[in-house]
Design a protein around this nucleic acid. Structure first.
Lengths: 348, 348
DNA sequence: GAGGTCATTGTGAGCGCTAACAATTCCCAG
DNA sequence: CTGGGAATTGTTAGCGCTCACAATGACCTC
């Protein structure tokens, strides 16, 4: 608690104490090679003694580099965005960058524009936008900004550089898993149409069915929430005994609602109906029964996004601007084991 | 995508185009009163035409104000920290500040020190530390920093300004609710000892029991995870029929594990054992059965924290430095209704 | 020991902005 | 009209740092 209001020491102050010029202090701080060891020691000692810290504003002004990146996101309390945010910050910090975040309630042109303005005022060199809604992707493409922007989760259609998890692949893995377990067909509870991820998951599900010559049932639609899953689950329960034995739900939270509705309707999971989710949120393993789901590698998304953005900032030609896709992974648990134990996985 | 590498226009450029001095441009941007309307219009037009944006570094250097706050946190993918983070950013932005975040994997002296250094390099004017672990609180008190720091979640014992949810009150609400429902005693699954929140919840639980003259059973201990809840649940199941009819679990994730273990042991909730959690994560409403829990007002925590920190920065004497406490709220659901419906709450 | 090279250090000029003060213009009372 | 005060605008210094270049000194070669 020694944040006295005294003017903090400047490089010139340190230089005076060390008996050198301010430029030599700058060289020591910048790890310049041509500084005599004795001089360096003197300077470091003076820095230590005065508790000197380089003024970032002055530095940024002189170098024209703020070493700050911005992140725009909505729904940051959800597991996916929160994980991505975490990975982004960690990756950026490893590269010596600071991250400024703007969390929106809704991601539309207006709020997005304000967010970019705010970040721009803050002097960011580039921005990562978590823009899973298609409207957000379109808004991004429209907006003018004086810095590069990388989108996360916009899918392949986007006109800006993007990093994604391969949602279609994930959906094919989930659906294929159910087909391989002997189910004749797989029903689908989709996410909101406006979300690219939801669309891609539906596309993957459909293509997996069509690949084995099965006509896909009409998908139901939810809004990601457990409540919407619960309602869809009630509807699905009505189809049990009429060809419904397996459901691919577009996310784990809705799957939670589906599980509850099925249970209440007297439908057993997985004996009567097998359920697969998507996301692998930490709770999924403890659902009743534990949920088979698709895990996304958010850490990889974060790292690739940062490295792509830095390529853009540095003017390097990025490796794959056309859209980077990261492979998801199927996690099999009891909700798709007709005869397996209800417990036991990952306990011990 | 027009981030050309041309040098962006400066205030002087705008001034030249508008036929005024750079200072007049500065006045227009700063909403100074004494600028003639015609002049203001000319300047604004020139700004618009050149797409001018004020250089934040230069501004910060001249004013000695970066208008940037830092946030340090661990476990940012958990619901609580993520919600607080969201609220903090929103509150800060409303006050015209930008927020830089550092997300740590572990909050110990070393990482905390690095985080503060990193933020300091980034030029923050103050920092909010989400420091629910007692070790983190101690580390904070030790560390030197050239800016004010506000802690969140450190409880009353801390030696630095802090904002908290009143965990003891929350625990008393939960325990009292169970006692009022007719339970003779209430067992407790506590969180990790190192967490102040866990300690406070245990204290509140104990005091509620002692207030009605009940000797508290020995609490079990978990690590917040569903797995640890599952294991504790197995142990708790063994006490059913020997006086155990109600459990207060220190968070919802562990409660999820407890519910699963009880179910597997053939123990019915809430008929045989009533369960209360803490946090009210979005999934709690869809657990089997829906979970009675304690909701924390993270938005209020965020707002109070920012306003306290800004008081400190501006040198105003803050209203209540001794620790701000925010009231939590009990949310009653089916896990504590001996005879109520298992579903039905908040559906419709 | 003169000349040249390299390592090391210092000097001066900004980076783009705001604050303080000086200068100019405007307006109206006298 | 004309003086004086207020309104409006301009001028001059930095803010603390890095960059480009100049200057110094050490060391080596012939």
């Amino acid at each position: 608690m020694n944040h006295l209001q005294l003017r903090p020491p400047t490089m010139a102050d340190v230089a005076r104490l060390a008996g050198v010029s301010h430029q030599t202090v700058s060289r020591v701080l910048g790890d310049h090679p041509n500084v005599r060891e004795a001089t360096r020691a003197k300077v470091l000692h003076a820095i230590e003694e005065m508790g000197y810290r380089r003024n970032s504003s002055a530095r940024a002004l002189a170098t024209r580099r703020t070493r700050t990146l911005g992140v725009v996101s909505a729904n940051t309390t959800l597991y996916g965005p929160a994980s991505t945010l975490f990975a982004l910050e960690e990756a950026a910090r490893a590269e010596g960058y600071t991250v400024s975040t703007v969390s929106l309630r809704k991601l539309v042109v207006e709020t997005l524009s304000e967010a970019l303005d705010h970040l721009s005022e803050g002097g960011v060199e580039g921005v990562i936008a978590l823009a899973p809604q298609r409207s957000a992707a379109e808004a991004l493409a429209e907006l003018r900004h004086p810095f590069p922007v990388v989108a996360v989760g916009t899918g392949s259609g986007a006109e800006i550089p993007s990093v994604n998890v391969d949602q279609q692949l994930g959906a094919r893995l989930a659906t294929g898993h159910l087909l391989a377990a002997g189910h004749r067909t797989v029903w689908h509870l989709a996410g909101p149409e406006d979300w690219q991820e939801a669309v891609d998951r539906t596309v993957g599900w459909r293509s997996a069915l069509e690949a084995v010559g099965v006509e896909p049932p009409t998908p139901l639609r939810g809004d990601w929430s457990p409540l919407s899953g619960y309602r869809a689950g009630q509807e699905l329960a009505g189809w049990v005994g009429r060809g419904l034995t397996a459901v691919f739900v577009a996310n784990d939270q809705m799957a939670l609602g589906v599980l509850r509705a099925l249970r209440e309707a007297g439908v057993r999971t997985p004996q009567d109906v097998a359920v697969v989710g998507f996301d692998d949120i930490p709770e999924s393993e403890y659902f009743a029964p534990p949920l088979t789901t698709v895990r996304q590698d958010f850490a990889a998304v974060g790292q690739r996004s940062i490295s792509l953005l830095l390529d853009l900032i540095e003017g390097r030609s990025p490796s794959g601007t056309q859209g980077i896709f990261i492979e998801p992974q199927l996690v099999v648990r009891a909700s798709t084991f007709p005869h397996g134990p209800q417990s036991g996985d990952a306990l011990d």
